[in-house]
Amino acid sequence: MGTDRLDEVLDAAYDCLTRYGVRRTTMDDIAASMGVSRSAVYQYVRGKDDAFRRLAGRLHEQALRRARDAATADTPYEVRLHGVLAAKLDLVLQLAGDSPHAAELLDARARVFGDICTSFTTELRALLTALFTEAGTAAGVTPARAADICVAQVVGLETAPRPRDLLAPATRALATGLFATDARPDDTP
Rank of each mutant, 00 (worst) to 15 (best):
G83I: 05
T171L: 06
R162A: 15
D165P: 08
Y14C: 05
L91V: 08
V22C: 10
L10E: 02
D7F: 10
R24N: 13
A87D: 05
L166Q: 12
A160E: 10
R19E: 13
L127E: 02
A96E: 12
D107W: 09
A31M: 05
D69E: 15
Y42I: 06
M27N: 04
R38S: 05
T3V: 15
F120H: 06
L157T: 02
A67V: 04
Y42R: 07
V41Y: 01
R164W: 11
D148Q: 04
D186R: 13
A67W: 00
V41R: 01
P163H: 06
P185E: 14
D49H: 10
A139W: 11
G156C: 04
Y42W: 09
V9E: 00
L95F: 08
S33W: 06
S33E: 08
A56Y: 03
D7L: 11
D182H: 15
E78K: 10
T159M: 15
D74N: 14
A51P: 03
G2M: 14
C16R: 02
S119C: 08
P76W: 07
A56C: 12
R172V: 11
A13H: 00
G140F: 06
S119F: 10
Y44I: 01
V22Y: 13
L127S: 00
D90F: 07
D187C: 08
T122R: 15
A168T: 13
T181K: 14
L59T: 08
A170E: 04
A135Q: 02
V36C: 10
G114H: 01
A146D: 00
E134S: 14
T118N: 02
G140P: 02
T122N: 11
P163K: 07
Y20L: 15
A108V: 12
V155S: 09
A173M: 09
A31E: 03
V112A: 11
A67K: 04
T75Y: 14
R111G: 09
G136L: 02
G136W: 06
V22Q: 00
P163C: 09
D15A: 15
I30T: 02
A71N: 08
L174H: 03
T122F: 10
V79Y: 09
I149A: 08
E123Y: 08
V151L: 06
A70Y: 05
R109D: 15
C150E: 02
L131G: 02
P185F: 09
R24F: 10
T18W: 04
L128T: 01
L124C: 06
L91G: 03
R109I: 01
A63R: 03
S37N: 12
A126N: 10
A86H: 14
F113V: 01
Q153P: 03
E158P: 03
V151C: 01
D107G: 04
R125A: 11
K88L: 12
S37W: 10
R53E: 11
A56G: 04
A96Y: 05
I149N: 00
L95T: 03
L174E: 04
V154I: 12
A146T: 02
T133Y: 08
H101I: 03
